[in-house]
Amino acid sequence: MNRRFSQLEFGDRSDKEPGKAGTGEEIRDEEYFHKQAVRYWLAGDFELALRHYSRSLEQNSSFYPGWVGQVLMLIELGEYREAAVWVDKALEMFPEHPELLAVKAVACARDGRMEKALGYSDNSIGKDNVTSAVWLARAEVLLNRRSNIADNCVSKAVSIAGEEAPMVRLRAGRLLNRQGDYAGALGYLQKAVDEFPKSALAWYELGRCQAGLGRSEARVSFEQALKLRPNWRVAEEALRKVKGRGFLRRLFGR
């Protein structure tokens, strides 16, 4: 699991053609498609990321990061019921898997089924080898319930992330952004853009956070996101809004 993101290349070389890794043709196994999926996720293209997670499972249906990724992409796309159905199927293959239980909790929380979400989150957190993804899911459920200990869960997720820390920081920043805690998200997202300078998603989220805080840098962040992924409708819309904001609205951050 910890090796999942360790070989990703997000730097100057990250915009190479998929499948051509410099020294020759990469083997198109589940790991390869998984990496591609993560790359598309970092670009904010959740539909393509989902497709690549599916392709990774076509290579090996027992590759559980692929299942987790599929469910997360369905959640990103707002298809919460489908995500819940799909995670149930994944749980048949990987019974009581903490990460799968955690993403089910997230799907339920986003769909407004808080009691179920809390139940799945409790279940996932009680398992052995709890990963940072589980703590992040816990944080999301608790933030939805406006619990004060949600911040501790985010900190815990980052502290145990190990090699995955950059990715977890980005996820944590997005989570706090989503809940309107822009001040808390800013630190994580600034680190995330340092670590993934070619990620349109990271820049977009940083822009949202800065816009939420009423900072003028938001415009630069959105422009950077659009430079990395031209014609991204969501970022274009965000940029248009930021450009149209007057001094008072920026002052009050709304």
Partner: peptide, 24 residues
Amino acid sequence: CGSVLSGQGVAVDVHPPRMDRWKG
């Protein structure tokens, strides 16, 4: 742990159900 060991040889549908746009 009860997890599936290998998907090879076992037919598993790996394409998730999708929501129709009008349902949103």
